[in-house]
Design a protein around this nucleic acid. Structure first.
Lengths: 235, 235
DNA sequence: AAAAGTCGTGTAATTTAAACACAATACAAA
DNA sequence: TTTGTATTGTGTTTAAATTACACGACTTTT
């Protein structure tokens, strides 16, 4: 009890002197390219640089709720894929002081929200050309992108980026865009048919300058039924 | 005196309404069981409950540095596997107020630190029987355990839990303990020899009541050389 | 010297993945 | 109407990985 008020004050500040924010890495798919939604930084230090969509947590606000709030504000969508990826807390990551951020990855179907995006400072970027983001957002983006590449191979996330009805060509284009590789069309089809989660809805593409492909829907119900199999040791 | 401290505290809290902590889920392996290191909660509300090892971040302390600090304090080890798993921030997770915690997963070789553990309130628990932890630590523990089960199949983490020299039987026991399944001994060997990361150090087990097995070391160098192969879409 | 227990290796059957070819369909151009 | 072009849809064949399963070899214990 010999401590001075000042000592106690700085102790308390030491505990509470951290601000928390959420940053969203929002992926979309358009013209057979994987895109990420960026906004111009509003900080002078990062003038002219692009940054992720983020905000400080409000008092009494749940972390995931904050991520949904940001998504809703920017895209108008609230029923979207959202997943926590990692926390970033480098001491020097934010010029205003100590701000730890929790990064979320989100996948949205661009078709569903096009109208709201024509804000001057908001833009879909091709993931291949994203560079030199504000803050530590380049690192956050790359972490989320790698996480997406891995996750999309093990879980049916990708369908969030496509229309409800899609052709197998669209699906393959999506996977090729996300993974950055070319896949054999025949083996790709065989693989997905073998997984047996695609519902043939007995419709075909329209407005294509060639033989139209059949359209499918992903069977989320059936997917939920099947328990994940043992994947096997391999590294 | 108390009043002014509280006044200061609530002032500061009004601005920085979140405290940040780190919790470590420290796994070990002993007697062919996967263990986790727990400590008695020091909070009255959770009297008699076990909790993870955690602490508030100090001012100007990097998050990962805090995790290493906790590990060092509790186990005496500082060159150990450590990996961020997730942030947990439920509004009601901590009785003292808003505390967001970043969970880290750590794997340590029990043999290397045995001497420091005989603190009354610190104990290795069999992961199978961990239940009813303090705070939201049950959820954190389960998240980290699942993450470990997945990661150990894709990366050579498991060797951190074993002595430098180990037999294939020990390695298999480790995998069976982590994954909670039985594996065919012959196929397990074939698999690991095919991966070709085990160095035969030309020694054999001692003090076993049967034919001794050969001892191996993991070749981290060779592992770093090989780039991770394409794993394939499957869910 | 025999029994008990685990080590180390191998083979056959099955499943999965990779490489590859061709007819069928729709549109566009002549 | 016919022909050319592009893409769909469906195989097959080969190689690689996984699974299931068996037997002799080696050390300690009795």
């Amino acid at each position: 009890m010999n401590k001075s008020i000042q000592a106690i004050e700085s102790e308390i500040k030491a505990i509470y002197n951290v601000a928390l924010s959420v940053d969203c890495v929002i992926f979309g798919f358009e013209e057979n390219k994987l895109k990420v939604l960026l906004i111009r930084s509003d900080m002078e230090k990062f003038q002219s640089k692009w940054s992720l969509l983020g905000d400080l947590l409000k008092a009494e606000e749940d972390i995931e709720a904050a991520a949904y709030r940001i998504l809703k504000q920017r895209t108008g969508l609230d029923d979207v894929f959202l997943e926590q990826v990692a926390a970033f807390g480098n001491l020097s990551r934010h010029p205003a002081g100590r701000v730890v951020t929790i990064a979320y990855c989100s996948l949205i179907n661009v078709m569903h929200h096009e109208l709201k995006i024509y804000d001057n400072e908001l833009h879909w970027h091709d993931v291949e050309t994203v560079k030199d983001l504000a803050f530590d957002h380049q690192e956050i983006f790359e972490t989320c992108y790698k996480r997406l590449q891995k996750r999309v191979q093990e879980h049916p996330l990708g369908f969030s980026l496509l229309p409800n009805k899609f052709s197998l060509r669209e699906l393959q284009n999506l996977y090729e865009a996300i993974l950055g590789i070319k896949l054999d069309r025949r083996n790709f089809r065989k693989k997905f048919f073998a997984m047996d989660f695609l519902i043939d809805i007995d419709e075909i593409e329209t407005d294509v300058p060639h033989r139209p492909g059949k359209l499918y829907r992903f069977d989320y119900e059936k997917f939920e039924m099947k328990k994940k199999k043992w994947s096997g040791i391999d590294f």
